[in-house]
Design a protein around this nucleic acid. Structure first.
Length: 416
DNA sequence: ACTTCAATAT
DNA sequence: CATATTGAAG
């Protein structure tokens, strides 16, 4: 109930004291003649900053930038402080600085204490800043890599395939419409657009490249098709002429891997399953289109596949997808009785990610940038930017939006 | 523990 | 080709 009174409140007495920026503060500081005043203000502000730092320390993961800024500010102020003290050689409030804590650790500071060079301040400052930045970047990049890490985590032996996957991610979109999706549906979705839309993965921010595995910057072509791993009896469906090229490329990727690693898992891998085909929206759209062309029900996997004109796609894959498709379309026929009104919303089948149960749903599709919900009325009137359907070759009328044409999809969750 | 999806088996 | 089962991933 009582209002909490932060330290700041008690501190900020003078109106001039609340700076808009650090620079502002410094300027203000410079106008002060009395050294002691200067120092006290500096300390004051510093302590507040450090206080703040402590507060957000708990959230440093969530607020890396805040930490960064704060640290930076603190460093700057500290340097200023030292400047003051050293200039005037006034020890004065020396003891008054119990506040040094985490920040103190930064090597730079120590150096400062010893070396003490005013001239270098700029560089020092920069250096500090840089170092922190680096830290941050490191984190980022690592997190980025984490994706792969994640994979590795699960299966070391599949390292090779994993690698391939990554590649697939990074390239995607531009070249071939589909495969855009990795294995991530929900959580990973964030990555998708990232890799998809930025031609250059951020990776190369490197201030100092960590020894982490460096990925090859450039891989132009890759196969999104089925991985070569297919082996097995997968021979059929190879009719695709262009598919051959992929393979060659794919083989090039492994060089980074240690022979032992790749050799070992390779053998036992024989039994492993084929890499999952990812049915990206585009791919699915094609699928639906083909299906429609074929008159829906009578469509056979083979026909569908041919119509889709996606090379590397196998009958099995189509078949499997068809199965799922049918399952979806059939769902809950009688459930709510004759209530067909329900409808459309449920009818659109987006790749699973959008299933969200959120009841809010309808209102603001805009909420999510990618809201795929455009009604099927007429041809895809929606032309949602995200979808942006690469018109590309979609020779046929893309006409209808893709959907599992079912009308009812239990709204909400199943009762369990 | 539960669901969904795609690969395989029948 | 249709359906059932399996295995993986979330």
């Amino acid at each position: 109930m009582g209002c909490v009174v932060p330290a700041e409140l008690s501190l900020d007495l003078r109106p001039t004291f609340v700076p808009k920026t650090i620079a502002n503060f410094l300027f203000h500081l410079s106008t002060i003649q009395t050294t002691s005043d200067k120092l006290s203000k500096l300390h004051d502000f510093l302590s507040r900053l450090e206080d703040e730092l402590n507060k957000i320390d708990a959230f440093k993961r969530e607020l890396p930038l805040s930490m960064l800024l704060l640290n930076d500010a603190i460093l700057v102020l500290k340097e200023e402080l030292e400047k003051c003290t050293s200039k005037n050689s006034v020890p004065v409030l020396e003891e008054f600085i119990p506040l040094k804590k985490e920040i103190d650790q930064s090597e730079e500071n120590k150096n400062n204490d010893r070396d003490k060079n005013n001239n270098n301040e700029c560089s020092k400052d920069k250096k500090n800043w840089m170092s922190s930045v680096q830290l941050w970047n490191n984190n980022t990049t690592t997190s980025n890599n984490n994706v792969s890490d994640h994979h590795h985590h699960h299966k070391l032996n599949k390292l090779e395939t994993t690698k391939k996957r990554e590649e697939g991610q990074s390239v995607t979109v531009a070249e071939d419409l589909f495969q855009s999706c990795s294995s991530n549906r929900n959580g990973g979705s964030a990555f998708m657009p990232f890799s998809a839309y930025s031609s250059v993965p951020v990776t190369t921010v490197t201030l100092s490249a960590p020894k982490e595995e460096k990925e090859e910057p450039v891989r132009n072509r890759l196969s999104f098709l089925t991985p070569e791993v297919k082996s097995l009896r997968e021979g059929f469906g190879s009719r695709g002429s262009r598919s051959s090229s992929n393979r060659a490329v794919s083989s090039s990727s492994p060089p980074t891997v240690q022979p032992s690693l790749r050799a070992a898992p390779l053998q036992p891998q024989q039994t492993s399953r084929k890499q999952r085909r990812c049915w990206s929206p585009e791919l699915h759209r094609r699928f639906v289109n083909a299906l429609q062309k074929l008159g829906g029900s009578q469509a056979t996997p083979k026909q569908i596949r041919e119509l889709m004109q996606v090379d590397g796609l196998t009958n099995d894959e189509v078949k499997s997808h068809l199965q799922k498709y049918r399952l979806h379309t059939r769902r809950v026929p009688a459930a709510s009785g004759t209530d067909q009104s329900v409808v459309v919303l449920g009818g659109l089948w987006m790749p699973q990610e959008h299933y969200n149960d959120s009841s809010k749903g309808s209102s603001t599709a805009s909420g999510s940038p990618q809201s795929p919900l455009h009604l099927a009325t007429g041809s895809r009137g929606g032309t949602s930017p995200t979808e942006g359907d690469s018109m590309e070759d979609d020779d046929d009328e893309k006409s209808e939006s893709y959907s599992w044409k079912s009308h009812i999809h239990r709204h909400g969750k199943v009762g369990v």
